[in-house]
Design a protein around this nucleic acid. Structure first.
Lengths: 115, 115
DNA sequence: CCGGATCCGATGGGATACTG
DNA sequence: CAGTATCCCATCGGATCCGG
């Protein structure tokens, strides 16, 4: 495997960063792990997020193929958002982030193994 | 144990996001994996990064305990930056990001220089 | 109910000048 | 060499109005 390629590494990591980089990206993705949700359903779940912020976040995730957007032609229109396989697969990244964060969060760990 | 806590999950993931969230954070960390480096050494390695951007990135990483800053009182002053254990441990996160990114990057499926 | 359009304040990153 | 201080602009995120 490529062990010293910086450039291609960059692009791959960048893809992940764009996915969770936004302020609400993580929250949106987290909610969608519970299953498909409609727009205002997400809005309510995320508390004080504004329409534009949520739209932007969803559009970004959609462009990356992380989120799938399905329009259900009822009246009024219903739009359902769900995670794609790529999105579900992203759990591994979040999990790793969380593991690292919890391990090194300040103050939470008293035992400072001096090595 | 934390199996379904969203809030603490958030804090942990947030810690990771703050670490790589900045535009240059990833590049700085990557360079430091090669070993301790001085300020201008980093600057040159990172190409067109400005003084302020590099300073900001390093300060942020320093605050989080990811990077260690050591002043060597020579003349002129030398300052050496290196990764802490927390920083070195972050490789797992970057690795996971990279793995996911490479797996799902659009169209870039073909492998290069396969032995 | 979903979300596009627009204005606005906060923030981040870059360029330049100057200092210890 | 290693920054600090300052100004500037691009982008982000939020609020509001409006249309499908």
């Amino acid at each position: 495997m490529s062990s010293s390629e910086d450039s291609m590494c960059r692009a791959a990591v960048d893809e992940a960063l764009q996915t969770v980089g936004g302020k609400w990206s993580y929250d949106v993705i987290s909610r969608l792990y519970y299953g498909p949700q409609r727009f205002n359903q997400l809005r309510r779940a995320l508390g004080g997020i504004t329409v534009k912020s949520l739209t932007d976040a969803l559009r970004q995730l959609e462009r990356q193929g992380v989120v799938h957007r399905e329009v259900i032609p009822t009246y009024p229109v219903n739009v359902e958002y769900s995670l794609t396989e790529k999105g579900r697969d992203f759990r591994a990244v979040l999990f790793q982030m969380r593991a690292w964060g919890e391990k090194w969060l300040p103050g939470e760990k008293d035992e400072k193994a001096e090595g």
